[in-house]
Design a protein around this nucleic acid. Structure first.
Lengths: 199, 199
DNA sequence: GTCTATATATCGATAGAC
DNA sequence: GTCTATCGATATATAGAC
């Protein structure tokens, strides 16, 4: 290990490829560019990943797993029998926080999934749908309990998800607002949309 | 003109390239693929566009112009001295309608602008910012008049724009809702966010 | 304005020495 | 597990005949 980080070479490759795929796009990034970023030759990448597409799948799959995990953890940390509003608040904060703090993973999932193979894309879409179902269940429960009043359940689902997803494209740590402040605003917007009034 | 459409060859190229850039990405689309779609050889494309990047710039620029135009027209058609709420309603409807009916142009602007040259990207960003400023002005006026009550002016701007932008990625004509129904819902959501209560 | 032919560069991926 | 060398395919773009 002559390259001074504590990471394995495979993890170094993941780190570099994630940034380059997210910023330059999968098709716009060459194996040689990735290898340059790691400090090895392109041929050596194939000792760690079978193909370029396998690298994209590895990164996409783990990004989706991380996103699902942090949002589920946020819900699990709620006190017993939380209201739908409390669950919505926790979910949106976790969703937005992830998209701020892991913007490369977020942009990969949002922009590069079409470059996956048919089979991997199918799996990724299923994984993403399962994530969205968590929020869909919260909205449905809130409607059933009378807490929420939605013009359209499916469109509100998309609206809340996409508001938060887009944060990954514009948030800069040097900007006007900190992470928690942005999460506060989006949590409030989600409540407003779901209940029809400010929380 | 042996290829049976009323379009010039340049416009046929624009039509094909727009679809392929929007779906497969700029870097993922080759000049040969575009030429195949038109029914000519790749070399012939250079009789109409100086380079591949020039094609992307042509398409990006005209997409941004169209978007700006339809939203400005929607505002111009309002009766004299409209309220901020009326202007917000008109803007959001036009924004969402454009993203449904011109989803390829919308996805090009949203996903492929990073493939433009430095100079063209600078121009495109400026053009997009000018468009966003139209909504920003509506929100600012509504705050000044007391019609709107926003947790954060800039974040609400992004939230409203991105809700509508994302429609281009999921709307299908064969789906559950028609164009006007989707516009209705998003116009209502925007009012809810801006005023703090259902319209 | 389209064609064939080609220039030049780079792509993902493999073989085999070390 | 990294390296050099290279394969075969394909990329953007140009030259010049028709």
């Amino acid at each position: 290990m002559s390259r001074s980080t504590g990471l394995t070479t495979a993890d170094e490759i993941r780190q570099v490829a994630l940034v380059q795929f997210a910023n330059g796009g999968y098709e716009g990034t060459s194996m040689r560019q990735i290898a340059d970023g790691v400090g090895i030759r392109a041929a050596s990448l194939y000792n760690h990943f079978g193909s370029k597409e396998e690298m994209l799948w590895d990164l996409t799959s783990s990004a989706l797993e991380s996103l699902t995990l942090v949002c589920r953890e946020a819900l699990d940390e709620l006190p017993d029998t939380p209201t739908a509003s409390e669950r919505l608040d926790a979910f949106v904060r976790a969703h937005v926080k992830f998209h701020i703090e892991n913007s490369d993973q977020a942009q990969l999932v949002n922009g590069q999934m079409s470059s996956l193979s048919r089979q991997h894309r199918r799996q990724a879409v299923a994984q993403r749908d399962k994530y969205q179902d968590e929020l869909a269940a919260i909205l449905a429960d809130g409607v059933a309990s009378g807490e929420f009043d939605l013009p359209d359940e499916r469109l509100v689902l998309f609206a809340i998800l996409q508001m938060g997803t887009a944060v990954a494209t514009w948030y800069r740590p040097s900007g006007r607002l900190g992470v928690d402040e942005v999460c506060d605003v989006y949590a409030e917007l989600a409540q407003t949309i779901a209940t029809g009034r400010r929380p």
